[in-house]
Simulated scan of single mutants.
Amino acid sequence: MNAINGSNEATYSRVRDQLRQDIITGVFEPGVRLRIQELSNRYEVSQMPIREALQQLQGEGLITLLPQKGASVRKIDQKFVENMYDIRIAIETMLVSRGIDNLSNRELGLIEEHQAQYEAYATAGNMEGALTANTLMHHRINQLAENPEALDIINRHWGLIASLRSKFGFSQQRVQSIIEDHRGILEALRNRDKEQAVRLTRDHATKAKIDLLEQMSNQT
């Protein structure tokens, strides 16, 4: 069993992350029913954080919740990942286009700090730290548009992407490509070049999609 303790919020987050990881790694296979009591026993928590975790993972698309039938695991295949990234590309390009007008020098500095952290972690081979810095950088760019509804949609998939990357990894070329992409996006932001920022954001997310799909294909 995996004992998960802490505050209510921490407990919920840990249950959610562990359940997500168990789905991604095949502990719970597609179509399997997820029974609340069994999950509560497995993770040694009450039923409340289990229910909250299931709601969150439904939002990510990992499970389905049906009246009278409960929760079941969805199949995470290449089509699922492709659709997820297509949504991300559409929303992120819209957000950077609208957000660049709100970009202050202070915000730019914070974005640059996250990118520097990403490069440091990536160079050291700490991909967990790099993924966190990458998430923070993109989140700060995305929130400039002041569109919480769009931000909520795109944020649902960050944990899922991180879990998929933990399982399938990156191609050797991808880490350096991310650094180059980030530098280009930052330069466009410094110049307040909306057209360039949109183009580079679209290219960056598209390359991320292609790389993850290739990594999945190589391991199946």
Rank of each mutant, 00 (worst) to 15 (best):
S166I: 11
S166Y: 14
S166T: 14
K167V: 07
K167G: 06
K167A: 10
K167E: 13
K167H: 12
F168L: 09
F168V: 03
F168M: 06
F168P: 08
F168R: 05
F168D: 02
G169A: 05
G169N: 05
F170Q: 06
F170V: 04
F170A: 07
Q172H: 14
Q173V: 03
Q173I: 05
R174I: 01
V175A: 06
Q176I: 06
Q176L: 11
Q176H: 13
S177P: 06
S177C: 07
I178T: 11
I178S: 06
I179Q: 11
E180Q: 11
E180T: 12
E180P: 02
D181I: 00
D181A: 03
D181T: 00
H182N: 14
H182Q: 13
H182F: 08
R183I: 08
R183C: 09
R183S: 11
G184D: 08
G184A: 04
G184K: 04
G184Y: 04
I185T: 02
I185K: 02
L186N: 11
L186W: 05
L186R: 12
L186T: 09
L186Q: 04
E187W: 09
A188Y: 02
A188I: 04
R190M: 03
R190D: 08
R190I: 04
N191F: 06
N191G: 13
N191M: 14
R192C: 06
R192P: 07
R192V: 07
D193R: 03
D193W: 03
K194S: 12
K194G: 01
K194E: 10
K194W: 02
K194C: 12
E195Y: 01
Q196E: 12
Q196K: 15
Q196H: 10
Q196L: 12
A197L: 01
A197Y: 02
V198K: 10
R199H: 12
R199M: 14
R199C: 09
R199D: 14
L200F: 03
L200N: 01
L200P: 00
L200M: 07
T201C: 10
T201P: 02
R202I: 03
D203K: 09
D203P: 01
D203L: 11
D203R: 10
D203Y: 03
D203T: 08
D203G: 02
D203C: 02
D203A: 13
D203M: 07
H204E: 01
A205K: 07
T206V: 05
K207M: 10
K207C: 02
K207N: 13
